[in-house]
Amino acid sequence: MLRLTRGIFPTNSVEAWKEALEKNKVVMLDCFATWCGPCKAIAPILAKHSNDEQFKDVFFAKIDVDQLPDLAQDLSIRAMPTFKIFTNGEQTDELVGANPNALQALLVKATGA
């Protein structure tokens, strides 16, 4: 899973998720559901951040909690959207809810930008 372009990469399997964690120092995971209104509202903001030079060192991934319920359970997802930051394969931060300012702050904190 080499990142040749920026953007948010759909993670459609547990194996793809593990590979993303192994191959990227900092991973931002967006846990969403297709029926979730707040998820839809914040998606364009996250997409903008994924293409921002300031966050170029972050690998942006997303999982549909309805498509990967076991992974969502393993990640302790209780509400959507939930954003998780992983550094060197370990969860280091989390944001629950569609709060644009808090999302940006989470990314700034994760990258030291």
Rank of each mutant, 00 (worst) to 15 (best):
G89I: 11
R3T: 09
A79H: 01
W35N: 13
T87V: 11
T34V: 02
V96M: 14
A72P: 10
L71I: 12
V65N: 00
K84P: 03
K62W: 00
L95P: 08
Q104E: 14
F9L: 08
G112T: 09
P81D: 03
E94I: 15
E22V: 03
D70Q: 15
C36Y: 01
L75A: 05
L106R: 01
K84Y: 04
D52A: 12
T5I: 12
Q54S: 08
F83P: 03
F86I: 14
F83M: 08
D57F: 04
G37H: 15
L75H: 07
G7I: 10
N24G: 13
T34D: 12
V26F: 01
D66E: 14
V65H: 00
V58F: 02
M28A: 12
W35L: 13
F59E: 03
L107Q: 00
Q54V: 03
A43P: 12
A105Y: 02
M1S: 10
V96R: 13
A79E: 05
L46V: 15
D30Y: 04
K40W: 01
K109V: 05
N101R: 15
T87Y: 00
W17R: 00
E15H: 00
K25F: 02
L95G: 07
T5V: 14
E90P: 01
G37K: 15
P10R: 02
G37E: 14
T5E: 13
R78E: 08
F86T: 13
L68F: 07
E94S: 14
L21G: 06
F9V: 05
I77S: 09
L103N: 01
C36T: 04
L21F: 15
M28V: 06
V26C: 04
A61P: 07
S50Q: 11
L103M: 05
K84Q: 12
S13T: 11
D52H: 09
A61W: 00
G37R: 15
V96S: 15
A41G: 08
V14N: 03
L106A: 06
T82C: 08
D93N: 15
R6G: 15
A98I: 06
I77C: 10
N12F: 10
I42E: 00
L68G: 06
G97W: 08
A72D: 08
